[in-house]
Nucleic acid binder design. Structure first.
Length: 277
DNA sequence: ACAGGATCCTGGGGGC
DNA sequence: TGCCCCCAGGATCCTG
């Protein structure tokens, strides 16, 4: 499930393959996408040069060069989404929902997504602020201050894991890295957010950044479906401390990792290292 | 008002 | 062995 480290890995893979190329055609379908493709987006895209690729939270933003600087092709990988750059003669994988032709047929950017939780859409510059606005997407974890996080945490009775998963609080955390960061911070995922002391909030913020930095260095986690580049797998799944390890011994204290359900998500924690209080 | 649940979707894994 | 059911989850909408 691509979260921030996986999306960052994909962006780094795409940059040398896409930046500077020209979009010469778009083919979408035949199946309906989660966000239906608007036919008039084609006219906005064809002929444009792909200028710069960057990540915001779990979103991939492929910005388009002039005339309307700030327009972008926006991709969210959802659960099983994948972006690849291939030569047209290479057979297309099943569940390829969108193909963007580049440089008059020499290459193409493909979007495949078996589970179709992903999104792909054209974002005009005029709507840019809406995505960036804090009502939809909070700061990048490295920009989040302890004060910011404390302000969000102290006003809700949601469990702390639900707060970490809330993209408005900070952008990019999903189920895996929420569990891993809470273990790193030695906080129980079910703690009511407003019961966290200031030093615990600070510990959590620093744990989030540490876990994400480590995961990016390992090219993210590959579980079933995440690949980047040409079938390259991330390695961070080998570093998991709690995620998916229920019944296995804690690497720190040897107690058995527990599993429960919080915020509608499978949740993994060490009952000893992450005591409730 | 706010928190938790339902929803979408499919491949894969477990159980019988 | 084979089949069926259920489960995984990001974001959004719904319910109590």
């Amino acid at each position: 499930m691509p979260e921030l480290p996986e999306v960052e890995t994909v962006v780094r893979m795409l940059r040398p393959r896409l930046e500077g190329r020209t979009l010469t055609g778009v083919r979408v379908g035949p199946r309906r996408l989660r966000v239906p493709w608007q036919r008039h987006w084609n006219a906005q895209l064809v002929g444009r040069r792909l200028d710069h690729i960057h990540r915001r939270g779990k979103w991939i933003m492929i910005s388009l060069a002039r005339p309307d600087s700030g327009d972008a092709l926006l991709v969210h990988l959802g659960m099983t989404g994948r972006l690849t750059v291939a030569e047209p003669k290479t057979p297309r994988a099943p569940h390829t929902h969108a193909v963007f032709h580049l440089d008059h047929g020499k290459h193409e950017l493909r979007f495949q997504d078996p589970r179709r939780f992903g999104q792909i859409r054209y974002l005009p510059a005029s709507e840019h602020a809406r995505l960036q606005g804090t009502e939809t997407l909070g700061p990048e974890p490295w920009q989040l201050t302890t004060n910011d996080l404390a302000a969000q945490v102290c006003r809700t009775r949601r469990c702390i894991k639900a707060v970490l998963l809330d993209q408005r609080v900070l952008a990019g955390i999903g189920n895996i890295y929420a569990d891993e960061a809470l273990f790193e911070a030695r906080l129980h995922p079910g703690r009511i957010a407003l019961t966290l002391a200031r030093n615990e909030v600070d510990r959590l913020r620093r744990a989030v950044v540490r876990v994400l930095d480590r995961a990016i260095r390992k090219h993210g986690s590959t579980i079933l479906t995440f690949y980047y580049g040409d079938d390259e797998r991330g390695e961070y799944q080998n570093e998991f401390r709690v995620y998916g390890r229920q019944g296995e011994p804690c690497r720190r204290c040897r107690a058995l990792i527990a599993a429960t359900r919080l915020a509608g998500r499978g949740t993994h924690y060490c009952p000893t290292c992450q005591a409730v209080s």
